[in-house]
Computed example of a mutant assay.
Amino acid sequence: MADEVITGLRELPLLVELGSALVLSSLVGLERELRAKSAGLRTHTLVGVGAALFMLVSKYGFGDVLEFDKVSFDPSWVAAQIVSGIGFIGAGLIFVRRDVVRGLTTAATVWLVAAIGTACGSGLLLLGTATTAVHFLVAVGYPRVLRLMRSALREPQVVRIGYLDGYGVLRNVLTLCTSRGWKVLDLQVEREDTDADEQRTAVVAVHLQGKQPVADLVNDLTELDGVLHASAADSAESGI
């Protein structure tokens, strides 16, 4: 009885490592849960704690066996088995629908949580904490950086529009552009004429930036009343 109590007391410090795996894997799982991913809080937490427990057992669970002569083992093989074994869970999270692969990031996150749990079980708490921080940097920070880069690299488009002046056509043109998700960067009047019937016409170059195909916008503009013609121009030719 006394030996069991002593053994239990020796295991108490290991609860710190197991608890660290619980906290860190729960943080990662909470982020996935809030994003409504297929693997959420419970899955990530169980994977992280399970990996930590496997590592702790491999380190401290065979002390009685090592008392015998000519008995030795390498605890690092358990970490290798965790890496290969977690692949079964990750594979179940990945699916293909209409040639679109989904679930790769969540599967990678489960794999990462297993690594965090293994690190905690090995006593590398600082390394596990740093890896958790890296997860949030990649999962939360990277998408924002990518959106900024795509916005910066997206080349402006130039649409030349000929219309009847004096009928509010230009106002309708700009309203249509913004309603289609385009941002008006600049507007330059290239030509103004008056024909024999004393109708004033004008040609403007509208500098736009957006995600939609500019050809669709041009087609919509040509259908507006008062628009004589519309065409997309090369942004390089327009001095952008």
Score class of each variant (00 low, 15 high):
Val65Trp: 08
Ser20Tyr: 03
Asp186Lys: 10
Val83Met: 04
Leu34Ala: 08
Pro156Thr: 15
Phe136Arg: 07
His207Tyr: 14
Gly8Tyr: 13
Val159Gly: 05
Val138Arg: 00
Val227Glu: 10
Val49Glu: 01
Lys59Pro: 00
Asp99Trp: 06
Phe73Glu: 07
Ala80Leu: 12
Ala119Asp: 03
Lys59Ser: 10
Leu46Thr: 11
Lys70Asn: 12
His207Phe: 13
Ile161Trp: 11
Leu148Met: 12
Phe68Ser: 06
Ser72His: 09
Thr106Lys: 07
Leu125Ile: 14
Leu187Thr: 15
Leu228Glu: 09
Arg42Lys: 14
Pro156Trp: 01
Arg102Met: 07
Val138Glu: 04
Leu56Met: 13
Gly85Tyr: 07
His135Cys: 12
Ser20Leu: 12
Gly19Asn: 10
Gly162Ser: 09
Lys59Gly: 04
Gln188Phe: 11
Phe62Gln: 04
His207Arg: 12
Gln81Ser: 13
Ser26Pro: 01
Ala133Tyr: 12
Ala21Asp: 03
Gln209Val: 14
Val23Trp: 06
Leu22Trp: 04
Trp111Ala: 01
Gln209Ala: 15
Asp64Glu: 14
Val47Asp: 00
Ala139Asn: 08
Ser235His: 14
Thr131Lys: 06
Ile82Lys: 00
His135Pro: 04
Ala152Pro: 05
Ala133Gln: 08
Arg147His: 13
Gly19Val: 09
Met1Tyr: 11
Phe73Tyr: 15
Gly8Arg: 10
Val78Cys: 05
Leu27Gly: 04
Asp74Gln: 11
Arg200Leu: 07
Arg160Phe: 05
Tyr142Glu: 09
Gly141Leu: 08
Leu30Gly: 06
Arg191Tyr: 04
Ile240His: 06
Gly103Ala: 07
Ser151Tyr: 14
Gln157Phe: 09
Val206Tyr: 06
Arg150Lys: 15
Arg191Met: 12
Thr106Gln: 08
Arg102Asp: 09
Gly226Ile: 06
Asp64Asn: 11
Ile6Cys: 05
Val113Gln: 02
Gly103Thr: 06
Arg171Pro: 09
Val110Ala: 05
Val96Gly: 10
Arg150Ala: 14
Cys120Pro: 03
Arg191Val: 11
Gly90Cys: 13
Ala196Ser: 04
Leu9Cys: 03
Ala196Lys: 01
Leu208Pro: 01
Val169Asn: 01
Ile94Ser: 00
Gly8Phe: 15
Ala215His: 11
Ala230Lys: 02
Ala80Ser: 15
Ile94Cys: 02
Gly92His: 10
Val110Asn: 02
Val113Asn: 01
Phe54Trp: 03
Ala21Arg: 00
